[in-house]
Amino acid sequence: MAALQLPLLLLGLFVPLAPTARAADEDPLQDFCVALSPDELEEHQLTLNGLPCKPTAAVQSSDFVSQQLRNPANFTGNLGSAVNLAAAATFGALNTQGLSIARVDYKPRGINPPHVHPRATEVLFLAKGTLLVGFVSTAPANQFFYQTIYAGDLFVFPRGLVHFQFNPDKSKPALAIAALNSQNPGASQLAVALFASDPPLPEEVLETTLGIDDDEVRRLITSVQNTLN
């Protein structure tokens, strides 16, 4: 019995030391790290995983407040949605805190089209209106999880998965607040990545991948570019 207990004891000591998968940004190593302004960054010419911090003595109470989300972002293109993202780059107090927050406005029948956030899980709170929301999983493969949500509801979009939001109402707008567990979540729209990249993807790649001919590829490229203008 004693011979069995020693290996079990050692296992209990070392298992907690095993590396674990991280689900978000690294934990901060100090109470705060307010980001330098773009002008200050340009002056220092630094490249970092994150943003450099202001000296503690230079930090003021006003650094921790922002009016950025009081108003919607400009509606661009023909999608009928506007995303105003407060992240470390626009609200320095978020630097090292592992989160960002967005205001998303939707016109009637507006859509925040299929996209991914490579570095963040998103939880969306619907403040006003109605939305059809959903994402596509990888395991089980390509399963579509979707729901119609109403004012006061929450919905979670897991990290890195394709997801969207659509306002099905023909006359009323919608407003959502989204929290993301990264100070720089990133966003890549699928249609833009495929048909409006710079430089463009080879047409042969798109034709083979999508099973369409070159005329259809060119039509889709033009259509996506027109949607963005």
Rank of each mutant, 00 (worst) to 15 (best):
T20N: 00
L99W: 09
D153S: 15
E216F: 13
I149N: 10
E204V: 04
L194S: 14
G134A: 07
P114C: 01
D198K: 15
E203T: 13
A176V: 15
P19W: 10
K128V: 06
L124S: 08
P113G: 04
F14A: 00
G80F: 01
H115M: 01
L161W: 00
P185G: 07
N71Q: 13
D214R: 14
E26W: 01
G129C: 06
I101A: 01
A89P: 00
A151P: 02
N181E: 14
F155S: 08
T121N: 04
T208V: 07
A178V: 06
Q225C: 01
T121A: 06
I212Q: 02
L175A: 07
P158M: 03
I177G: 08
A120M: 07
G98T: 07
T138H: 11
A176G: 15
E40W: 07
L10M: 06
L13A: 02
Q45C: 07
D105W: 00
F64M: 03
L36I: 02
Q183A: 14
Q147M: 05
F144P: 04
V59K: 12
Q225V: 05
A141E: 15
E26Q: 05
V224A: 10
G186E: 08
L85R: 04
V116G: 01
A120L: 05
E207S: 15
Q143T: 13
T138Y: 07
A179E: 06
T56Q: 12
T90K: 12
L210T: 01
A187W: 00
P158L: 04
A73Y: 08
E203K: 14
Y146E: 05
A23W: 09
A24Q: 08
V133W: 10
P16M: 07
E26D: 10
Y150D: 02
V156F: 04
P140R: 05
D214E: 09
G92D: 02
L206H: 05
T130A: 08
L85S: 09
Q97G: 02
A127Y: 15
Q67R: 11
L9A: 03
V15M: 10
L180T: 13
L201P: 12
G186S: 09
F125L: 15
Y150R: 04
N74Q: 13
S61D: 12
Q143I: 06
T96A: 06
R159E: 07
T209K: 00
L51R: 15
N78P: 00
